[in-house]
Amino acid sequence: MKVAILQMEGTNCEEESYIAFKESGFEPEYLHINLLKKGMLEKYDMIFIPGGFSSGDYVRAGAIFAARLKAKVWNDLKRFVEEGKPVMGVCNGFQVLIELGLLPGTDGISEEPEAALATNESNRFECRWVYLKKSSDSIFSKHVDDVTTLPVAHAEGRFLADKKIIEKVEEQNQVVFRYVAPDGSKPDYPWNPNGSVNDIAALVNSYGNVFGIMPHPERAFFWYQHPDWNRVKREMGDGWQIFNSLFREIIEAKNR
């Protein structure tokens, strides 16, 4: 299964992401937006938009990346999503998917953004480990534990949308992970690091194949990347569970 890892000026999580896919049984390939041409995405089975920055995150985080993708391959991207192939964005990649209108995608694909990942309530770059509670099963989360811990690193991660969109997102069970306090209760700052509505940390579209997450699973792929590595025994990092979930739901399911 070939995964296109998209890059742009400022992308900086592509190597960890590449390793995460490779170690999980996928065939990742880097694909820089400046090399991207119409018709090129067809040969891939999945698209991944990594974290970092894009074009200095000027205007809004992810906005320039999204506008460039839209100008170049919008029809190809829409076809990719409509065919049911998986698309995943982490951090800046999540911001790109929101700006494209592929997420929350309450009604499939939207030509205009339906939501925003706005500046954190704290008005700061928030960089720390957070707890996530699984809120729904999807191909990205089916084999993920109920509570996991992953690092966040962003200045713009506060999920905002009109009331109607948020209601629809909840009704359709599109929230995949929510921030949670260490004791499992509803989180205040800093456990909800950005002030996201309903503590939303990750979303899937209504088709179930486009997934965006603010925390970085690729940065917690191996057990030794966790800060409590010498106190808590793990075979793999918590972030691995997301890639493994994809592997089991897509590749294993195909061979079954």
Binding site: E99, P113, A116, A118, L160
Partner: peptide, 9 residues
């Protein structure tokens, strides 16, 4: 429309 504004916010 293409870049500067996100109409949601």
């Amino acid at each position: 429309k293409k870049l500067l504004v996100n109409p949601v916010i």
